[in-house]
Nucleic acid binder design. Sequence first.
RNA 1: GGCGGCGUACCCAAGUGGUAAGGGAGCAGUCUGCAAAACUGCGAUGCAGCGGUUCAAAUCCGCUCGCCGCCUCCA
Length: 478
Amino acid sequence: MIRVYNTLKGVKEDFIPQKNNEVRMYVCGPTVYDLSHIGHARSAVAFDVIYRYLKYRGYKVIYVRNYTDVDDKIIKKANEEGVSPKEIAERYIKAFDEDMDALGVSLPDFRPKVTETMDEIIRFVQTLIDKGYAYVIDGDVYYSVRRFNKYGTLSKKNIEELEAGARVEVDERKKDPLDFALWKASKENEPWWESPWGNGRPGWHIECSAMNKKLLGDTLDIHGGGKDLIFPHHENEMAQSEAASGKPFVRYWLHNGFVNINQEKMSKSLGNILTIKDALKNYSAEAIRLFLLSSHYRSPIDYSPDVLSDAEASLDRFYATKERMEKEWPDVINKKADKKKKEERLKPLIDAMDDDFNTALAIGHVFNEVNNANRMMDGAKKSGVSDEFKTALSVIKAVFGEMGAVFGVFHKSPEGYFNEKKRYLKISEDEIRNLIDERNNARKNKNWSRADEIRRELEEKGIILEDRAGETIWKVKR
RNA sequence: GGCGGCGUACCCAAGUGGUAAGGGAGCAGUCUGCAAAACUGCGAUGCAGCGGUUCAAAUCCGCUCGCCGCCUCCA
């Protein structure tokens, strides 16, 4: 049984989708006005793993992640650059897609855009007006917060205190300062769409409600996003959707924690925004993914060179072991793993993931198995190959394969992994080869000082030499 | 001010009542010409602090200290 922490209830509870085997899942995607940063990556990776895991556990998942391509910030940027909002949106959708692809984030089943959902949005607003939850003023449409008596239940906010503490500039025309815009009449130099209330564009929250209704129906099983979206975005979404349908909007609200940079919140004013593209210049996508999955998705995490190096070191260890398994015991690991034994070994991993997608614990178990595999291979070398050993090693290989597919980490070929590290090389491969040859000649002549000198020389350039039986191999260790 | 959360070894991190997973770094050993990798051993008598509940607490309760997030666009 999967258990998830539901923001709405504030506790972990059993995960039971409305339709026995089917999960309808929606995650808030980016507003495409700038390059995506490492925080977007966290949200995307966290929910990607949740998506993959639900499928792994046998659910049929319909996963939707939107692009907000109509928004104040997009318009502002477009006006600054003297280009159309459409051009801005397209540019950053492309950039976001590239980033997701680089990070190995799987494509959601649907990726709706606001511009392609306009009819549904307008109908949705009209429904809210018809039901008395919204009112029109000079071409604007506002949602009447006080009409929805559950307002504040998601973010645990008291409506009276909200009003008292409101720091937003109040639009005097609104009936209540808390009311928010469903539809905004277009101003000059703004994109607009025709509507019953005049030309205008949607407010921020209505798109998600409309997209959800269109693609997933009135009630979702999972709705996800960053913690910062709980208020006001998700609170407003819930208010809109439940007012319109009269049904519960979301069964399980899931929210991921933030990524800080050197203990500070990322923000434009601090100037410490780390884009995904910049992160990828310094670290591999897999290391970034492993870093993101090394703590629980709800905890805040701190991005720093140290923790990313830790992730790289972990990956080196994992792939060195995988390589050893493949090189030393190809016949053993290519045999089909015993199903029952596999389930036994998989159990701790499954239990961890079932418990609110505890990737950190599950990855810990992966490394327990790395240790087991190495110990068993050492043992087999010393005291012979037993059937037990063969079974266990093939099972571990299978465990790596299955969990690798869920995490989107640990799934490469060791050769491919170590080859990728060559991008950090500060010396040509030919030069390395030549130096290794020279060193091996020196070793033959027992010229140990020259041999060690070459080793040191290469080490300074981030190359580690390993003298194996009959050959010297080199690896990138930066 | 309101709401929510966090504080576990040198660093990262799991653990929500039964006696501290895992990774990195470090030290020692096996192996090696020397290394590397791997393995073995060592490493928190204690989980911010102080009290309390309990046969038993990192885990529950209370207080104190420190840190953070949301309340306004934000993953």
